[in-house]
Simulated assay, not measured.
Amino acid sequence: MNDTASFGYRDVDASEKQGMVRAVFSNVASKYDLMNDAMSAGAHRLWKDQFVGRVKPRKDEAILDMAGGTGDIAFRLAKHGAAITVADINPEMLAVGVERAKKKGLEGLIWSEQNAEELSFKDRSFDAYTIAFGIRNVTRIDEALREAHRVLKFGGRFFCLEFSTTTWPGFSDIYDVYSHRLVPKLGKLLANDEESYRYLIESIRRFPPMPEFERMIREAGFAQTKVEPILGGLVAIHSGWKV
Rank of each mutant, 00 (worst) to 15 (best):
D3P: 01
F7G: 00
Y9R: 08
S15L: 14
E16F: 07
E16T: 12
G19M: 09
M20E: 11
A23D: 15
V24N: 07
N27M: 11
M35P: 00
A38K: 14
A41C: 14
A41N: 14
G42C: 05
R45M: 14
R45N: 09
L46H: 11
D49R: 13
G53V: 06
R54N: 13
V55Y: 01
K56H: 13
P57I: 06
P57Y: 06
P57Q: 04
R58W: 04
D60F: 13
I63A: 02
D65V: 06
M66D: 05
R76W: 04
A82L: 09
E92D: 15
V96A: 05
V98P: 00
E99P: 01
K103I: 03
L106T: 12
G108Y: 09
I110K: 15
I110P: 05
E113N: 08
R124E: 14
S125T: 10
A132P: 01
N137G: 09
R140N: 15
D142K: 13
A144V: 03
L161Q: 05
L161Y: 02
S164T: 12
T165D: 12
T165P: 00
P169M: 08
G170Y: 06
F171A: 14
S172T: 11
D173H: 11
S179L: 10
H180G: 09
P184G: 08
K185T: 10
L186T: 07
L186H: 03
S196C: 10
R198E: 11
Y199D: 05
I201L: 06
R205W: 08
F207D: 07
P208L: 03
P209K: 14
E214T: 10
R215F: 07
M216R: 13
I217M: 05
E219R: 10
G221C: 04
E228D: 14
P229G: 07
A236P: 03
G240D: 04
W241L: 15
V243S: 11
